[in-house]
Amino acid sequence: MIYLINKNTDPCLNHAIEEFFLRDTKEDVYSLWRNEKTLLLGKNQDVYQEIDIPEAQKRNIQIVRRLSGGGTVYTDPSNMQYTFIARGEDFLKGNSFSLFAKPVVMYLKSLGLDATFSGRNDILIDGKKISGNAQYKINGATLHHGTLLFDVDLESIKASMVSRPIKFQKKAVKSHVSRIGTIKEYLNGISIDEFMEGLSSYIIDYYKIDKIIEVDDEIIEKASKYLDRFRSDEWNFGKDFKKYISYSNKRDSGLYDYKLLLKDGKIMDIRIFGDFFEIQDVSELEKKLIGSDYSKEGIEYALKDIDIEKFIVGLKMEDFVEDLLRIGEKIEKETRMD
């Protein structure tokens, strides 16, 4: 494993650098980096439901969609992101989130903090979230990255991120802001630079890293071929789905936002958004459903050769079919009300 020093704060460039090392090298990588003010959107999220776009623009907050699934996170120079890129079957099996988060949790504990890995993808201190993690897997390699909220602009989070009650149906909290903590509030007088240096030293020792390189012009030039995607409005915003029927449901595996276009009893188009974690690209799942009859039998027939858990972590086929059929129930209810 190499330690990649990355002092760039352009979020599009930083994600392009990640993708370059993931796709174009065979290196295992650890890196710790920061962004300018940015809302990082999960790959499968609907930006129009997650972010108050005019408010974000007013505050000069960039909106960038990453490769990995999961939810939206706010980043700025007062907090940081860490990246691991690893090859091998051990990281591809099951849920490896806690495996990657382990040395981070151990470092926090070494500072005397009550840090734990919790739920699908969070690191907590005293029960408050200071880190969310996400993954993207391709060609036998895993890209794992996470936030670390050393300090945070809570006002920008409250103003620019949409608080959706459905996300907290099974939790005893009222909003994402009430769950957030910062590392700084638990430490006395340690600067963010000192914290980052200490964390990197700990991880270098943990993984016995003996190769250190810094992002330079050559690496930036090689990574630049991936820049256009992260700077593209088509990638970051996609299209508006005003003409589609929408239905949202929260399950243990994540929040699901379905967009469905029906005509003459058939599925003409479908999009599956949410903060779930995908294994295979869900667009392949969507393609299977287009043109099928909108009925339990039609949906099950279209998906007869599909193992849905190879697409979305933790989702059961019967739950997926149930969600799709609830869209029809929603149409019937709205028709009766009219």
Results as ranks from 00 to 15, higher is better:
157 I>M: 15
174 K>C: 02
159 A>H: 08
213 I>G: 00
163 S>M: 08
206 Y>D: 03
211 K>Q: 07
231 R>P: 03
188 N>C: 03
193 D>S: 12
222 K>P: 05
168 F>D: 00
147 T>S: 15
153 D>S: 09
227 L>F: 08
159 A>E: 13
213 I>L: 05
167 K>E: 04
194 E>W: 03
158 K>N: 14
210 D>M: 02
192 I>Q: 03
182 T>A: 05
203 I>F: 01
189 G>C: 01
186 Y>F: 08
176 H>S: 13
171 K>W: 00
199 L>P: 06
220 I>E: 11
138 I>T: 14
146 G>F: 12
211 K>D: 05
223 A>Y: 05
152 V>G: 06
154 L>I: 14
163 S>D: 15
176 H>Y: 11
151 D>I: 04
220 I>D: 00
190 I>E: 04
192 I>V: 09
231 R>Q: 12
231 R>W: 02
199 L>K: 06
230 F>L: 11
202 Y>A: 07
198 G>L: 02
149 L>Y: 09
141 A>R: 15
177 V>A: 15
198 G>E: 02
161 M>K: 09
157 I>E: 04
206 Y>K: 07
169 Q>A: 02
196 M>Q: 13
149 L>C: 09
217 D>A: 12
183 I>C: 04
188 N>L: 04
147 T>Q: 05
207 Y>P: 04
181 G>C: 10
140 G>S: 10
215 V>I: 12
208 K>R: 10
216 D>F: 08
147 T>I: 11
193 D>N: 14
199 L>M: 11
197 E>I: 08
231 R>F: 01
193 D>L: 10
167 K>L: 09
209 I>H: 01
145 H>E: 15
191 S>H: 03
175 S>D: 13
179 R>P: 08
203 I>Y: 00
186 Y>H: 12
225 K>G: 08
161 M>E: 07
150 F>K: 04
200 S>K: 11
233 D>C: 03
187 L>Y: 02
195 F>P: 09
136 Y>R: 14
181 G>Y: 05
179 R>W: 01
229 R>Q: 14
171 K>Y: 00
183 I>Q: 04
166 I>D: 03
218 E>Q: 11
187 L>I: 09
208 K>N: 13
183 I>L: 12
158 K>S: 15
230 F>S: 13
230 F>I: 13
206 Y>W: 11
230 F>E: 11
214 E>P: 02
209 I>D: 00
142 T>D: 03
203 I>D: 01
196 M>K: 14
160 S>G: 10
225 K>T: 13
